[in-house]
Nucleic acid binder design. Structure first.
Length: 868
RNA sequence: GGGAGCAUAGCUCAGCUGGGAGAGCGCUUGCCUUACAAGCAAGAUGUCAUAGGUUCGAGCCCUAUUGUUCCCACCA
């Protein structure tokens, strides 16, 4: 074994071994409990980022744990076609390669190029997931546009259409003028921007005066078809029903009354543009207003705007304001901050627009989905995210699912060019009812999230009743970041309920996002992102996994810094070297059976500790408290196993007693192997590699450690530890050289046997040359330094090294501590309320502590007197 | 406008059902001790944001306040 841990030497080899042995592929066994996780499919356009790394590390920890614990586990991987993101990439690629636009190259060729692109680059993220150690069943890898998933998409679309839950209509939608497609509400992000509130005069048609309206979007005025006021607004009561002249157009528009208008905002008069504002659109419907579209799909002014036609919407805004100023129709311009909708893919300003699109009717789907979570069929961890879910589901609007793109699932609807019939069908129709064969398929594709919503069952074979679907659905757990609860989690829940009649998973583990060392979100524009692959190259995948999962609590964000990578690597190196110590001492030796010999006090101590940590780690993982589990392992491995147990084995290994040596090595190897198993889900590569030095078998398929009753020893080895620490303490304070061995005198009545048995440990670990038991300090004739523990008084003759003043100061501090403790205990025990209401066990414990502290105090006091 | 989270050592954060404040990094001192200097040993460090309340007992529960981060809504 190398002196230091060198992950690049074995990570790829070990991953290949797991693959070759088929360790990731479950064998369906109906007598076993299935445990299934479907991966949140990364976009084929994506490069692995820290968010993916965190998400997949958590999934892998849980799935590896469940696999070792005996469940029939499936972690089903795959990728998402990411319709907008991929389309943008391919458009760019085509422009560079052929200097052609989408329209010029045509749909068929575009799709051919897109598939070529996908073949070339789409698999990259999958390779990156493998570097991380993800134990996905790659034989079941899915893609949202593969045959299986596409079949599910079409089935679901047709089913919902036939049920009347999918419809096509002209409605106000979010339009991205840059991506040139409609978007769902969830795909719009709002950002506060500095702007103005323009107050514009709209003259009465009868020529007497004007109404002033306030707007943030003057360019849309060309599409105004009314001005609305609140019916209760006394200022405007008499003008309701009057006509106004829309400036710059001369068109006549009415003044209408609608409750929606706030009286105390702006002027209390609101211009109504049904074609370009969602609220105005609703008002327009109520009042039957004309819809005049003034902005085109590409963000320029439409032909309805006459002389502004072809201008960009923001240029048009400036022109219009200028002209209004010229005509004296601008009352005032206020500075104003407001929220502007942005496209989540390209960051372009969203234009609300009336457009003919496909929608999913949400009400009937949302209600059961709300009920399911409310009744606990699906549980969010942590629970607070349920509120977010409810809030969204309860206020949901119909879901716009059509996208004016080519990369995606084409909408399975055909229009008869002769009779106008609309045919929605599972299979491509040959002819219309009217006999015409002149059919044209809808040009649009579906929202990417429409197919991801089906992921937990489409990947398992739906709509076919496959063995996988039968056995693995519903899945067991979903692990995802909180930022896609709406996009994905919520939609999977209602889709699962609707199409499978059952929630897709009983639990959702929500985690946070990875931030930079300053707590900022990692982003391309800030350039503060870190490439997980580079980190893996430098420190190894295990270090990255450890860094990401240490300190994570469900739902919490985590800050990442390279310092964490170093301390993670150091910990792994610690395990590596502890193993090296064990390996070097056991190589080629025959060991005994556990239980076939007498354990030393140190053995009993470590076995008991091991039992404790097994219980805690198991419980933490079951509750998805990954960070806590890891902290406990860290502490056990480093402090208990390495710092103490290994050191305690040295006196025995370096003694000449071959029999004892073999016994100690037996325990040492046993505990180490248990540690490797315990740590394996978190740091799979290094544990597997180390295990191979000891066993031929594969570690990842071993049984996860369980607590063993026979290791729950009654032991008081902590007394020995305390003696060792105290002696070391004196040595450090008295500046005794580390190599100098010193004699130790001990007064101990009740623990003398134990101390006697552990003599060797104390001598070796505390640098003691000889332990002598005495019955009273009066027996000592030399000048001694001393320390007191609860079970022993320690005396160390140090000759001239002793500084009595220093000693007295040190002991006085300890005396003070003991006195404080006594005070605290007396206060508690003199409290009637405590005595009568606190648990008996606790009261008894406090009594015992008090007793001990009083004894301790007396001993220290007598030491101080002795020194004076 | 509605909602949620967070506030604990110099920094990053744990602290599970209320019962003597913890870790890592950093810092001080001494050590290359035959697994490991990516290390060992011994240390120092806290008004648990503020003010009330519940309780025998509060970092933890309740109320208010302050600061901070985020999500949703979109009054033009």
């Amino acid at each position: 074994m190398n002196k230091t841990f060198q992950p690049w030497e074995f990570e790829k080899r070990i991953y290949q071994k797991w693959i070759d042995e088929g360790c990731f592929t479950p064998k369906i066994d109906k007598t076993k409990k299935p445990f299934t996780i479907v991966i949140p499919p990364p976009n084929i356009t994506g490069e692995l980022h820290m968010g993916h790394a965190l998400n997949n590390t958590l999934q892998d920890i849980i799935i590896r744990y469940k696999r070792m614990d005996g469940d029939c586990t499936l972690w089903l991987p795959g990728t998402d076609h990411a319709s907008i993101a991929t389309e943008l990439k391919v458009v760019e690629m085509i422009k560079q390669k052929f200097n052609k636009t989408k329209a010029e190259i045509g749909r068929e060729e575009f799709l051919r190029q897109a598939y070529l692109w996908k073949e070339k680059y789409g698999g990259r993220i999958v390779e990156q997931l493998k570097r991380l150690g993800s134990s996905c069943d790659w034989t079941r890898e899915a893609f949202t546009m593969d045959e299986r998933c596409s079949k599910a998409v079409r089935e679901v679309f047709v089913k919902l259409y036939e049920k009347g839950l999918i419809y096509r209509d002209s409605w106000i939608i979010n339009w991205c003028p840059s991506c040139r497609t409609a978007l769902s509400d969830a795909e719009v992000e709002y950002e506060e921007q500095d702007s103005h509130l323009w107050h514009i005069k709209y003259p009465y048609a009868d020529g007497k005066g004007y109404v002033i309206i306030a707007t943030t979007r003057p360019e849309t005025m060309l599409g105004d078809t009314a001005v609305a006021v609140n019916p209760k607004d006394k200022r405007y009561l008499d003008i309701i029903g009057k006509e106004l002249i829309l400036p710059l157009t001369g068109r006549k528009i009415p003044v209408i009354a609608d409750d929606y208008v706030e009286m105390d905002f702006g002027t209390g008069a609101l211009k109504i543009t049904p074609a370009h504002d969602p609220n105005d659109f609703e008002i327009g419907l109520r009042h039957n207003l004309e819809v005049i579209k003034v902005i085109e799909d590409n963000g320029v002014m439409s032909e309805n705007t006459e002389k502004y036609k072809g201008l960009d919407r923001y240029t048009a805004r400036e022109r219009i304001v200028e002209e209004l100023k010229k005509e004296g129709l601008i009352e005032k311009i206020q500075d104003y901050k407001h929220n502007v909708g942005k496209c989540y893919r390209c960051d372009c300003d969203i234009e609300p627009m009336v457009s003919k699109q496909w929608f999913v009717k949400m009400q009937p789907l949302a209600s059961p989905a709300i009920k399911a979570v409310r009744e606990g069929e699906t549980r969010f961890v942590p629970q607070r995210f349920e509120k977010i879910y409810f809030n969204w589901m309860e206020n949901i609007r119909d879901w716009c699912i059509s996208r004016q793109l080519w990369w995606g699932h084409r909408i399975p609807c055909w229009y008869c060019q002769d009779c106008g019939e609309q045919i929605v069908s599972r299979i491509d129709p040959k002819a219309c009812k009217c006999g015409s064969k002149n059919l044209k398929q809808d040009e649009d594709v579906l929202d990417t999230w429409f197919s991801s919503a089906l992921w937990p069952f489409s990947t398992l074979g739906y709509p076919d009743k496959t063995e996988d679907l039968e056995y693995f659905y519903p899945t067991s757990l979903l692990v995802t970041a909180y930022d896609i609860i709406f996009f994905w989690v919520a939609r999977m829940i209602f889709s699962g309920l609707e199409h499978m009649g059952e929630v897709p998973f009983p639990e959702v583990l929500i985690h946070g996002i990875v931030r930079d060392p300053e707590g900022r979100k990692m982003s391309k524009s800030l350039g503060n992102g870190v490439d997980p692959i580079l980190l893996i190259d430098k420190y190894g995948a295990d270090s990255l996994r450890f860094s990401l999962s240490t300190g994570v609590a469900p739902g919490g964000d985590t800050r990442f810094s390279e310092d964490k990578m170093e301390s993670s690597r150091n910990f792994i190196n610690k395990i590596w070297n502890a193993s090296r110590y064990v390996f070097m001492n056991t190589e080629g030796k025959d060991l005994k059976q556990m239980g076939a010999f007498e354990y030393t006090p140190a053995d009993k101590w470590i076995l008991r500790k091991l039992n404790g940590v097994i219980g805690e780690v198991r419980r933490n993982i079951e509750h998805y408290e990954i960070g806590l589990a890891l902290a406990k392992l860290y502490d056990f491995v480093w402090s208990d196993f390495c710092d103490w147990y290994i050191e305690l084995t040295k006196p025995i290994l370096y003694s000449g007693d071959e029999n004892k040596k073999t016994e100690t090595l037996t325990v040492l190897v046993y505990v180490l192997k248990e540690i490797l198993k315990l740590c394996h889900p978190f740091i799979p590569f290094v544990t597997e590699e180390i295990y191979s030095y000891f066993e031929k078998d594969i570690l990842m398929v071993q049984k996860y450690p369980e607590q063993k009753k026979e290791y729950d020893f009654e032991e008081d080895f902590d007394i020995i530890k305390e003696i060792i620490v105290k002696v070391r303490n004196i040595r450090a304070e008295m500046n005794v050289s580390q190599t100098k061995r010193i004699p130790l005198y001990i007064v101990s009545k009740e623990k003398r046997d134990l101390i006697e048995e552990c003599r060797l440990y104390i001598e070796k670990l505390a640098g003691v040359s000889q332990i002598t038991f005495i019955s009273d300090k009066g027996e000592l004739t030399q000048k001694v330094s001393n320390a007191v523990t609860n079970h022993a008084e320690l005396y160390i003759p140090l000759g001239e090294l002793i500084d009595f003043d220093k000693e007295i100061v040190r002991l006085s501090k300890e005396l003070e501590k003991a006195e404080n403790e006594i005070q605290r205990g007396e206060k508690m025990l003199s409290n009637q309320g405590f005595l009568s209401k606190a648990p008996e066990k606790l009261v008894a414990e406090e009594r015992l502590k008090l007793q001990k502290n009083i004894e301790l105090k007396e001993r220290i006091k007598s030491q101080i007197d002795y020194l004076k």
